[in-house]
Computed example of a mutant assay.
Amino acid sequence: MIAPVEPLDVDGVRTVQVGTALFLLGFLGLLPFYGRLEDEGTTWLLWMCLTGVGLGLLGMEYCKRRRRFRTERHAPVDG
């Protein structure tokens, strides 16, 4: 038997924020090792983290707009 549980209303903002923060920490953590990364040919790791931050910022804006749209759509109309 399945319990009658309402689905979570998740808008994704927190998830994207956490992911963006992790990419930022990865970028900042790898930055002091740029020379070693360059010697080993793995500077793509650094740029991948920076790209993750950039895409995360875009994703945050998208999720916030989506949340705002959903809130306005479900808000009662006064009048």
Rank of each mutant, 00 (worst) to 15 (best):
M1D: 07
G12R: 03
W44Q: 06
T71R: 13
L57E: 14
L8Q: 12
L58P: 00
L30M: 13
T71P: 00
F69Q: 11
E72H: 04
G12N: 09
P32F: 14
L31V: 05
R36G: 01
G79S: 14
T71S: 08
G26N: 12
L28T: 15
G26R: 03
R67F: 03
G52R: 02
F23W: 10
F33N: 02
E61G: 02
T51P: 00
L55A: 07
T43C: 05
E40V: 03
L37Y: 01
L46D: 00
P32C: 06
I2Q: 12
V13C: 12
Y62N: 12
E38F: 06
L22I: 11
M48Q: 05
G29C: 06
L55S: 04
L30F: 04
L37V: 02
L58M: 14
L8K: 11
Y34H: 13
W47M: 07
K64W: 03
L46S: 01
L55C: 11
F33K: 03
Q17W: 03
L50K: 01
V53S: 02
G41W: 10
M60L: 15
G29R: 10
L28F: 08
G54W: 07
P76Y: 11
F33Y: 12
P32L: 13
L28H: 01
E38N: 10
V18E: 08
L8W: 06
P76R: 15
E61H: 13
A21I: 07
G35F: 04
R70F: 08
V5M: 10
V18R: 10
F69Y: 12
M1Y: 09
T20Q: 12
R14I: 12
G52N: 08
L24F: 05
C63K: 14
L58A: 14
T71Y: 03
R14Y: 15
L22A: 08
H74M: 11
G19K: 08
V16Y: 00
T51R: 02
L55V: 08
E38A: 14
V13S: 07
G35N: 15
E40Q: 07
G54F: 13
L31G: 00
R14C: 07
L50C: 07
G54K: 03
G29W: 06
E38T: 04
W44H: 13
E6L: 15
C63V: 09
L50G: 04
D39F: 03
L55H: 05
R73M: 09
W47K: 03
V18N: 06
E72N: 12
G41E: 06
G56F: 06
R65G: 08
F27L: 09
P4M: 06
E6D: 15
L25A: 15
M60P: 00
L31Q: 15
A3V: 10
V53R: 03
D11R: 01
C49L: 01
R65L: 15
I2E: 13
L24P: 00
T43Q: 13
R36H: 06
R66F: 04
G54P: 00
